[in-house]
Design a protein around this nucleic acid. Structure first.
Lengths: 247, 247
DNA sequence: CCACTTATGTGGGCTAGCACACAGACCGGC
DNA sequence: GCCGGTCTGTGTGCTAGCCCACATAAGTGG
């Protein structure tokens, strides 16, 4: 926060040993991420990896009939473009900016080069990939078993972790698209949460008033994903705490 | 088939350049995979990677309330133990043998060593990881949007791709556990499919009679996953066709 | 071959979330 | 300040899949 815009605002970049970050710094390009912008579409060859700082990107899939649902979200804890690392270069899903903000991006070639070096960043990116896998797996479970209200709470908490202000600019329609449910269903769940004083919303804005209220209502999926992310990225703390970089 | 048990029965191993496979061969251990055996549980440190040949392993998650659902399946096209490669060493989900058979397994240390070399196998394993990610993502979508009957068709087709005989030893109860639905729901969907002459079953056995019948009933998810897998593992053909190994 | 275990079939009631159809309310631009 | 588009609120069916409770059949071991 003291540095208004710094790569350190992204947890992955922040976790890199100083030497590696310096090597990258020149190539990191700070770009605006406007709401709704498409980062890539299905089958599209990625040109950059994106390290969000204040923005959130939603990885989602659009069915043949035009319906869509979020598979995973990426905020300042991660990177958009894992398929570059895996070598597939594209995915059947798409990536869209869900919350406007900023991201550092790195050209495909640079990203691959760093990744193919036996570097700290590879280690880190692979661990993040596993966290992403966990998130997807849990989304599958959540879609199978949990109520829309629980899923809404999960979505709010995950967003809150990435936008600490707790003030989100979004409509119920957009949230419904994320969760892959109808807008009316969100209206009802949101009304119940507002009734309970957990959130407050008005035309295009949602504010979280009571985080613990969300936590009591949410399903286990939220905690599972969060715990696993923290386990996998504990290295993230290292440099910041002045401990020796990992490995 | 001409070689009753050969690493080549696994698509990933079959795709390796001869030199790399030979280096590995000594360390590959052929192990039986009995139905229901647990390969790893949640949070458990993996000791081996498993390359199934005739067996199928189900990656699934068990909720706090004891319900469970499959997140992805691994047969002769893949490997169980991606979390070793990613560096997390464990996952919140578990792996259980869904169809009895055989697998080649490789000790953790050997697998990591090969993976950390700048080898063809790393390239291949990463691409497979992306295929696995696609499978999970599509499962999330499928759970959100598609009917149990469609999901059952998908499951049957995926199993058929791994057990070409089309004769499965399993109960409706077990299938229900895979899909994360009730046994009665499977009974009804299966009855409809049998009615239509697509499958036939009796106490603990299911036989696919009409593959195309499944294909007309299944949702898009099946094709998306299959296509993506083939795209990512086209390299698999190379050695077998006598073309130069990839890269 | 009988008893017992395990798989499968069926039915009734219930609820969450869907589809469709509007009504009202907010807000920004002219 | 009012007009029009965009959000949000509600209501009435409707259906898939749930929960619960049995009934029946098909193997299996003694």
């Amino acid at each position: 926060m003291s540095f208004p815009n710094s790569p350190d605002q992204n947890r992955l970049l922040a976790a890199l040993p100083v030497a590696e970050l310096e090597r990258l710094a020149v190539h990191l390009e700070l770009v605006p991420m406007p709401l709704g912008e498409s980062i890539y579409g299905p089958g599209e060859q990625l040109q950059h990896g994106y390290f969000p700082t204040t923005s959130i990107v939603s990885l989602h899939y659009v069915t043949a009939s035009g319906a869509s649902a979020e598979i995973a979200g990426v905020g300042n804890e991660g990177v958009v473009g894992v398929s570059l690392l895996m070598g597939g270069d594209s995915t059947p899903s798409s990536a869209v900016v869900q919350t406007a903000g900023l991201a550092y991006r790195l050209e495909r070639r640079m990203l691959m080069e760093e990744f193919n070096r036996d570097s700290a960043i590879r280690h880190l990116l692979l661990r993040y990939t596993q966290a992403l896998i966990t998130q997807m797996a849990q989304t599958a479970i959540c879609n199978r078993y949990h109520s829309v209200e629980q899923q809404l709470c999960r979505w709010l908490l995950e967003t809150l972790d990435r936008v600490p202000s707790g003030q989100f600019v979004t409509t119920q329609e957009l949230v419904a698209n994320m969760l892959g449910v109808r807008r009316e269903t969100i209206t009802q769940s949101a009304a119940r949460l507002q009734q309970a004083g957990v959130i407050r919303y008005r035309r295009g804005h949602i504010a979280v008033l009571d985080r613990s209220g969300l936590e009591t209502r949410v399903c286990e999926c939220y905690a599972v994903v969060r715990k696993e992310l923290n386990r996998l990225l504990t290295d993230v703390q290292r440099r910041q705490e002045g401990l020796p970089a990992f490995r």
